[in-house]
Design a protein around this nucleic acid. Structure first.
Lengths: 219, 219
DNA sequence: CCTCAATTTGACCGTTTGGTCAGCTTTTTG
DNA sequence: CAAAAAGCTGACCAAACGGTCAAATTGAGG
């Protein structure tokens, strides 16, 4: 027989695993909609289909729930950036990165908004991550971009600003979706609008770097 | 003698004028730091140098304070966009707009964060403004950009995405300042970093539009 | 100085919210 | 099946917060 606290599954029983996941799902929606202060563990618990007391059986406090949600999305958020390949073709690499980042904005807008909210409030809970993991990662990728510049493959630009520009533009379509909807009547869920957006951003950035947009399917 | 409630000054006495301003200043800092839900009228009143009761003598509710702050910054926020001149040189117009927008991010980051916060929460209080005033304004400026494209002055791009890109990149440096500080150790208050940022963004966008960066002082 | 309106405050109230606890129910296990 | 552990809940508590009110203080005009 499998024990409840079997070390497989990270020491969690099936019930624990299921309920923690439901809580984190509901908490992500709640925190991203109302911010940390505006969110209530009562609403989160009911959205997760349980009582407030039961939620506090799984997490010791509201802060703990928030921290768990935040850390659960941080990795996914940075992963596509890690995949930027130094040996790849700059145009293809950057285009792929923009598309992947825009894809995240379309599919996980709540995560994007939660992240934005955290930074807007001064990023009190993830300063360590930003100042170490992220800083190192950015430094590494800046070196890649600098290599491309030195090799004459792209126009000169301060690499860190290129990175910020890609982050800013792609995340903007998730974080400012209400404004974009008010102005255009559309959002990234619309496939046509998504394609149009991706073309515009990639086109502007690639052209701005002196590159041409690569064909979809290389010969 | 001047009456206290003289119609000059918008029907406000000197004391009222002074205190309302102090409240709005404090409220902007508070709301931009903690969001609407996280802010407390008690902290706002003390930051403004008065009791909570007295703040509520000037504004009937927390909502009213927030609405007043929001409307006080909306105009200033959109003004530089209005100044985009259809008859000007595209390169100069766009460069000037980017610089002005970046300037706002540097000088009034709290306003930028408050605005971002409002939209993140779904923009419940300014949907009307966005769907009418902003939408019309964007449509007007899109026409300008389209004219430039049709005249062959800039490369083709869906105008609305060019606008979004400029907003996203410039506001990013205010809204995500903690992240940028964590990675670079600098922010827009540093004149060197400001100039570097402006050069990078303008350069990327102008080049992306097939333009060259204009000289500072035209002959 | 006196009067009256404007201004200011501390005490107070009802609600919301994060969190605790004793005990009930379900599941696991010997 | 029986006992123990895990899972779950409603009742409850204390703190924080938005807002009210009566009373005190201040300032302007005669």
């Amino acid at each position: 027989m499998r024990r409840r606290t079997d070390k497989r599954n990270g020491g969690l029983s099936r019930i624990q695993e299921k309920n923690r996941k439901r809580i984190l799902d509901a908490a992500l929606r709640e925190f991203s909609s109302f911010g940390y202060s505006g969110a209530t563990i009562d609403r989160i618990s009911h959205a997760a289909g349980m009582s407030k007391s039961n939620l506090l059986y799984y997490f010791p406090s509201k802060k703990a729930v928030y921290a768990a949600v935040l850390s659960s999305i941080l990795d996914a958020w940075l992963n596509p950036f890690r995949m930027l390949d130094p040996d790849g073709d700059p145009a293809r690499e950057i285009e792929a990165y923009v598309r992947e980042k825009l894809n995240l904005s379309a599919k996980f807008p709540e995560a994007s908004r939660l992240f934005a909210n955290e930074i807007l409030q001064g990023a009190p809970r993830i300063t360590n991550v930003l100042e170490h993991d992220l800083k190192d990662l950015v430094a590494e990728k800046c070196a890649v971009i600098k290599k491309w510049i030195d090799a004459g493959k792209i126009r000169p630009i301060e690499p860190v600003h290129l990175i910020f520009t890609i982050w800013a533009t792609t995340q903007h379509y998730a974080d400012f979706a209400p404004q974009i909807r008010a102005v255009t009547g559309k959002d990234l869920n619309d496939p046509v609008f998504f394609a149009e957006t991706e073309r515009a951003i990639s086109g502007l950035i690639l052209t701005g770097l002196g590159l041409t947009v690569p064909d979809k399917v290389p010969a």
